[in-house]
């Protein structure tokens, strides 16, 4: 893999967890992408910010709570997590409500960052 050219991959998450399979599938793709030594970043915009909310408890809903897995990303060397400020504010969510360390970016910065990527994959 060392001979390969590293590309900038951004995975854009904009859906809440549990109501559809997008959030979980996106997370699995991110974990798998870590095996390919690329420059991976994650963006959370719109309802995607709900994926990172603390205190998720799926017991009564009978589903698997995959929110702890976001905390494993660091061990996979995936440390670039970006959350859009406007999306947080529109939902009354504070950075302190999130279960991992993220970088909060304004919409314009987020758009610029997306524009710098080699590959953008949305979930």
């Amino acid at each position: 893999m060392s001979e390969g050219v590293s590309k900038r991959f951004m995975f854009v998450n904009r859906k809440a967890p549990y109501g559809s399979v997008y959030a979980l599938e996106g997370l699995e793709v991110v974990l798998i992408s870590a095996a390919f030594d690329q420059d991976v970043s994650l963006a959370f915009i719109d309802d995607g910010v709900y994926q990172l909310l603390r205190g998720q408890d799926t017991k009564a809903a009978g589903m698997k709570n995959f929110s702890p897995t976001y905390r494993a990303l660091e061990g996979y060397d995936i440390e670039k997590l970006y959350v859009e400020r406007e999306s947080l504010e529109a939902r009354g969510v504070a950075e302190a409500d999130l279960l991992v360390d993220v970088k909060v970016l304004g919409r314009e910065e987020m758009a610029a960052l997306m524009d710098e990527q080699d590959v953008v994959i949305g979930f």
């Binding site: 904009r14 915009i45 719109d46 919409r107 987020m110 758009a111 610029a112 997306m114 524009d115």
Partner: peptide
């Protein structure tokens, strides 16, 4: 859905 609005909010000149 709000998909189009989200897209337009992140589209930049030249796109």
């Amino acid at each position: 859905r709000s998909t189009l609005a989200a897209c337009l909010a992140h589209a930049r000149a030249g796109h």
